[in-house]
Design a protein around this nucleic acid. Structure first.
Length: 825
DNA sequence: GGGCAATACTG
DNA sequence: CAGTAT
DNA sequence: GCCC
């Protein structure tokens, strides 16, 4: 027969549906809300509709009248094929155990079905249809999810797949699954979503599930690619270890092994053997993933063990076993007060804000939203940088470090380059990698940091991003991209030699972030950082490979981008409308990957829908209502003004309070994502300060400065963690701003500064370094001898080594101090 | 293969 | 506890 | 994704 046998099975399958028992009730039930939601018209557009009707039996991309009990195969072109195809491939008995509740198909059905399924060989050579472009997908039966072609992109994908030899099946999955060889899922779908969409509790391992970029890639490379490659994997799917029937073997595959293995054992095997999957699973919806397979602790493990901790007050309030006695820098000079800072950099009161207000369109910055939090972590001044708050901006911006610093660092970097075990430039800001000396990473815990003089070796030093200033240089990002806080760059902000590469990789990073693959996204971020500090154009993979945090995969991508200006993968991975909605929802304060995905699955595309139809937490309500406001960057002048207001009120309450604006403001960037203010007082413990915080908040709220609370520390266990997250507004014509108050005991102010000054990459790097050296660095201090149990569960607090001084912490960790402006990793 | 920072608040 | 936040 |  002709290639026309690219068929959709829906006709016959639909007809046969009568003979088949419905999927069990539970499945239907659980699916129902989804379906219902899908059907509600989406004011927005596209995205949601794409998944509509997934469980409907109505035909999806064939409009011809359907006839019951007809076994006709219908080509997507509309021709009716009267072939009597046999089963598409060797009967692969869907392991009954996998879908225990599902009734077997009636024999008649099976028989007919097998008989009527086209034999590939017959059909393939028929080149009658000009549309047929290749036959690489011969013998493959694709089931797209969502199973419709309402989305133009998907329609094209279906079409293309079909043109290259695939059978594209539409209709109820329940009835077509015997034929299905591949499930092609929209990129926003994770395994649980897929199960939901098709109303199944699990899927037989022989069915390959890939993301929808798989077919396009195959077409491009004119061959069947390895569907196991990550980019095609569906997050959350228990990888069928032995179920990977190579595509080429599919038609001849004897799936006996699959059929005999019990699903559970398979699952466990798989999880053990494919770390990636187990990893991914952690971020998938645990419930839905796990349910079918019973309790798999491996999967259930949360990525980051949490644990409730009552901070021992004495650790904070007593000098304790501090190795370091005093911090001259702090003691010798008066703690800078916020007012002092303000005085030194006066703002032009009204004129500025008048102007600002006039030019504050609500949404224009929105696209950058998701970049905010990642990069404008916290900024703080270190203790002596008080005076250069203003000056800071200029040199940080220019990418020039103050002379001396630069010299020193340059020297160190140069030395490092000669180090055999260091990459030529381990300067990447992200490199949390520990290229350091053998000295510690082997067994961090055993390592006694106090004895490791090696800490100070340059080799070790340079391995961590936290040891490198942000070399603005030519590789600086254009801050308009929103990738950063713009790093206060008036001049050095020019394009780097690898902007294009960075841009493309950023898109991928964003994509992985969107799809809850945080570690892969992290890798991209690190790589981008690395590229940023590379002052020359990267042209080849081998060149790129030499940079830290860039491995084979990224290197080849870089080369592709460098040579073609584009990345093929990106085109197919391209952000769908679902992605847009996902991104939108993720941008809401209080909404994370789970909620965002859930909403997208429900078909929502706009904030209005969310506001009207969803139950929201208090924080989320604010997040939705103030989505636009929170998405806007905050000019540092305004940040300063917020600080001034808070400080003014604080001073009314207690003259002795010390406030510091931290976050990216402290790092000198010109616009910030939020406002972080540390509140402390000489000699004070957290408890007292916490009480003061309550009063400050109270008063500021009365004043109308604070507009909403998003999260606040509970009652009185104030010792640590007292924080207040909320929103503030300077004047009615300005946006609400995200503002955080952090109350810290005097003894912890250094660690708090360090932590809340960020940026994130810098922090992670520094904490990683600390852990390699046997310490734990957190927002309260640098600790020794923290004992951790399995899964890194912390069993012991450890001993506070240093918390008062940033400088000391750097020193103890054996790295040169870096002022805040140089922490823009 | 396993880790990738470490911790606090909400519901 | 899971999710979200920093 | 990268790295040990």
């Amino acid at each position: 027969m002709d290639k026309a046998s690219k068929i959709t099975f829906f006709d016959n399958l639909y007809a046969l549906h009568d003979g088949v028992t419905d999927p069990d009730e539970d499945e239907c039930a659980s699916f129902a809300p989804f379906a219902a939601a899908q059907k509600t018209p989406n004011p927005g557009q596209g995205s949601a509709s794409s998944s509509s009707n997934s469980n409907s039996n109505s035909k999806l991309w064939d409009t011809r009248p359907r006839k019951r009990n007809s076994l006709k195969l219908v080509s997507t072109q509309g021709n009716i094929v009267t072939s009597t195809p046999a089963e598409p491939r060797e009967p692969i008995t869907p392991a009954p155990a996998v879908v225990p509740s599902k009734p077997k198909l009636p024999e008649t059905f099976r028989f007919k079905y097998e008989e009527k399924t086209p034999r590939s060989s017959t059909r393939r050579n028929s080149t009658s249809t000009p549309v047929q472009k290749s036959n690489i997908f011969a013998d493959m039966y694709f089931y797209f999810i969502p199973n419709n072609i309402k989305n133009i992109t998907r329609k094209l994908k279906v079409q293309r797949a079909h043109e290259h030899g695939a059978f594209c099946i539409s209709g109820s999955f329940e009835e077509t699954q015997k034929a299905v060889t591949h499930i092609i899922a929209d990129s926003s779908f994770e395994y649980p979503d897929i199960l939901q969409a098709i109303g199944q509790k699990s899927l037989p391992d022989h069915i390959i599930i890939v993301k929808d970029n798989f077919p396009s890639d195959c077409i491009q490379f004119r061959r069947i690619l390895d569907h196991k490659q990550y980019m095609y994997l569906i997050p959350g799917r228990p990888a069928p270890k032995l179920a990977h029937i190579p595509l080429d073997a599919i038609s001849a595959s004897s799936s006996s092994s699959i059929a005999t293995a019990t699903p559970k054992s398979i699952q466990k095997e798989v999880i053990k053997q494919t770390p990636h999957n187990s990893l991914t699973n952690k971020f998938a919806t645990p419930g839905s993933v796990i349910q079918p397979h019973g309790s798999l602790d491996v999967i259930k493990a949360t990525p980051y063990p949490k644990r409730k901790r009552k901070q021992a007050t004495d650790v904070i309030t007593t000098p304790g076993p501090n190795i370091v006695k005093e911090t001259p820098l702090l003691r010798n000079r008066p703690q800078p007060r916020f007012t002092e800072i303000v005085k030194e950099t006066p703002i032009k009161g009204n004129s500025y804000y008048t102007h600002l207000a006039g030019s504050t369109p609500a949404f224009d910055d929105f696209d950058n939203l998701d970049d905010f939090d990642d990069f404008d972590d916290f900024g703080d001044p270190d203790d002596f940088n008080t005076a250069d708050t203003a000056a800071t901006t200029s040199y940080a911006a220019s990418g020039q470090l103050p002379g001396k610093h630069q010299d020193d660092l340059d020297l160190i970097i140069a030395t490092a380059k000669q180090h055999p075990f260091l990459d030529s430039e381990d300067i990447s800001e992200d490199d949390d990698r520990d290229t350091e000396d053998e000295d510690s990473h082997e067994n961090p815990r055993k390592n006694n940091p106090r004895t490791s003089e090696k800490i100070k070796t340059k080799g070790g030093l340079l391995s961590f991003q936290c040891m490198h200033p942000n070399l603005a240089g030519p590789a600086k990002p254009a801050d308009d991209v929103g990738t950063r806080e713009g790093n206060g760059g008036s001049m050095g902000t020019g394009e780097g030699p690898n902007e294009r590469i960075i841009k493309v990789l950023s898109e991928l990073e964003s994509h992985y972030t969107l799809h809850s693959d945080p570690f892969r996204a992290l890798s991209y971020r690190k790589a981008i950082s690395s590229i940023r500090r590379h002052p020359y154009p990267l042209l080849t993979a081998s060149a790129a490979l030499k940079l830290p945090s860039i491995g084979p995969s990224l290197a080849s991508k870089i080369e592709e981008i460098a040579s073609t200006g584009n990345l093929n993968q990106l085109d197919t991975t391209k952000t769908s409308s679902e992605d847009k909605a996902l991104k939108l929802f993720l941008g809401i304060y209080g909404v994370g990957p789970k909620k965002a995905r859930e909403w997208v699955l429900k078909g929502y595309t706009t904030l209005e829908e969310i506001r009207e139809k969803e139950k929201l937490t208090e924080a989320q309500k604010v997040g939705v209502e103030r989505h636009a406001d929170f998405g806007r960057r905050i000019p540092r002048e305004e940040v300063r003004e917020h600080g001034r207001v808070v400080e003014e009120v604080a001073r009314e309450i207690d003259q002795g309070l010390v406030l510091e604006v931290m976050g990216s403001y402290r790092r000198g960037v010109k616009s910030c994502g939020d406002i972080d203010i540390m509140i402390t007082k000489e000699g004070a413990e957290g408890r007292y300060i916490k009480l003061v915080l309550d009063r400050i908040v109270e008063r500021l709220t009365e004043r109308g400065f604070l507009k909403a609370a998003l999260a606040a520390s509970k009652g009185d266990d104030a010792t640590d963690g007292s924080k207040w997250y909320g929103a503030s507004q300077l004047s009615p014509d300005l946006p609400w701003r995200r503002i955080d108050f952090l109350v810290v005991p005097w003894a912890e102010r250094g660690a708090a500064l360090l932590y809340f000054t960020g940026n994130v990459i810098f922090n992670r790097s520094m904490r990683l370094l600390a852990s390699k050296k046997g310490y734990v660095l957190n927002q309260r201090g640098l600790y020794l001898d923290v004992i951790r149990g399995p899964k890194r569960q912390k069993l012991t607090e450890g001993t506070l080594v240093e918390g008062e001084s940033e400088q000391k912490i750097f020193e103890i960790l054996g790295i040169p101090y870096r002022p805040p402006e140089e922490r823009n990793a």
